[in-house]
Amino acid sequence: MKAVLEQDYASIKKKNKFLHNVKRDKWLYALLLLPFAYILIFKYAPIYGVVMAFQDYNIFAGIQGSEWVGLDVFEFIFQQDSFYRALKNTLLLNVYDLIAGFPAPIILAILLNEVRMAKFKKITQTVLYLPHFLSWVIIGGMVYLMFSNSGMVNTFLANLGLARIEFLSQKVPWLMTYISVGVWQHIGWGTIIYLAAMTGINKELYEASDIDGCSRLRKVWHITLPGIKSTINILLILQIGRMVSIGFDQPFVMGNSLVSDYSDVISTFVYRVGISSGDFSQATAVGLFQSVVGLILLIGANYIAKKLGEDGIW
C-alpha cells in the first residue's frame, strides 16, 4: 500500500512539475506551435497517400474510389530495367558523395578553427556558406558557363594549347564535375555544424597541450577530432540512411541525354513516371521503397556504431 501511495505521489509531483514548466515558459511553448503544425500537416498528414502504392490510382476516382491491386505496382516496377539503372546511379552518386563530400567539411572546419585572424576567418566563412543559399538553377547556369565546351575552363585550356575536356557530355568527366560541384555547394554549410561542435571542446585541453609542447597537428589529432567524434558519428549515420535518396534539383539540372547512364537517378525516375506520365501509383511505390530501405540502412548503421562503442542517434 505504501509503495502504491509513493508511486501515485511521484506521478502527481511529475505532472505538477510539467504544468509548472508549461506555465512558466508558455511563450516558448507557443513558439513550438508553428513548427509542430508544419510537421503535422506536411510530414505526417501525407502519409495517408502511401496507400496509392497498392492501388491502380485514378486521379478522378481518388484514393477511396481507386481499385486495390496489392503488390502489382511493386512487381511492375521491379521488372523495369530503367528502375534498376536509376537505383544503381543513386547508390553510385551517393557513395562517391560520401567518399568525397563527407570528410571535406571536417577538414575545412579544422582549418578554419586553426585560423587566428578573426576578420579573415569571418570573411572566409561567409564566402564558403554562400553557395548553400543559391538555387540549383543558378548553379546549373554557372556550371554551364564554366565547364561547357565553350566555357571559361575549356577556353583557358585551349589558350594553353591543351585539348578541350567534355565536362558535361562525357560520362567520367561529368561524374567528376557533378561530385565536385555538390561538394562545393554543401561544404560551407556542413562546416557550420563542426565549428559549432568545436566550440564545446574544453579550452583547457589546448592550454595543457601548449605547456606540453604539442604541435598543431597533434592537438588536432588528440583533442579536436575526439572532441567532435560524436557529431561525426551522428552525421555519418544520417548520411548512410539517405543512401537510396537523392535530391531532384542537381541531377535534373546538370544531367542530359548524353550522360543519362549516370544522371538518371530515382528522383528523376519518379518525376518521369509519376509527374510526366501521370502514374502516381508507381511514383508512390518508389517513394515508399526508398523510405523503407533508408530506414533499414539508418537502423543498421546506428546498430553497428553502437556495437563498435561509438555514439549513435538513439
Rank of each mutant, 00 (worst) to 15 (best):
A3M: 08
D8P: 08
I12Y: 09
K14N: 13
R24F: 06
D25M: 10
W27A: 07
L28T: 07
A30W: 12
L33P: 05
P35C: 04
P35D: 00
F54V: 05
Y57N: 06
F60Y: 15
F60N: 09
I63L: 06
L71E: 04
D72S: 13
V73F: 12
V73G: 00
V73Y: 01
D81F: 09
D81I: 07
F83K: 08
R85G: 15
K88L: 12
K88I: 11
L91S: 02
L92I: 13
L92W: 09
L93T: 01
D97A: 04
D97F: 07
L112V: 06
N113P: 02
N113K: 03
V115A: 12
R116P: 08
M117I: 15
A118N: 08
I123P: 04
Q125F: 05
L128V: 15
W136D: 06
V137Y: 10
F147I: 00
F147A: 02
G151C: 08
N159I: 15
G161P: 03
G161Q: 03
E166D: 13
F167S: 03
L168Q: 00
V172G: 11
W184S: 01
W184K: 02
I187Q: 01
G188S: 11
G190H: 04
T191S: 14
Y194D: 03
A197T: 03
T199W: 05
T199R: 00
I201K: 01
N202Q: 12
S209A: 14
D212L: 07
S215Q: 02
S215A: 00
W221T: 12
H222K: 10
I223Y: 11
I234C: 03
G241R: 01
G247D: 01
M254Y: 10
S257I: 12
L258C: 01
S260L: 05
Y262K: 06
V265K: 00
Y271D: 14
S276E: 13
S277P: 11
Q282C: 03
V286I: 15
L288H: 05
Q290K: 10
L295M: 11
A301M: 02
I304D: 05
K307G: 12
G309R: 13
I313A: 11
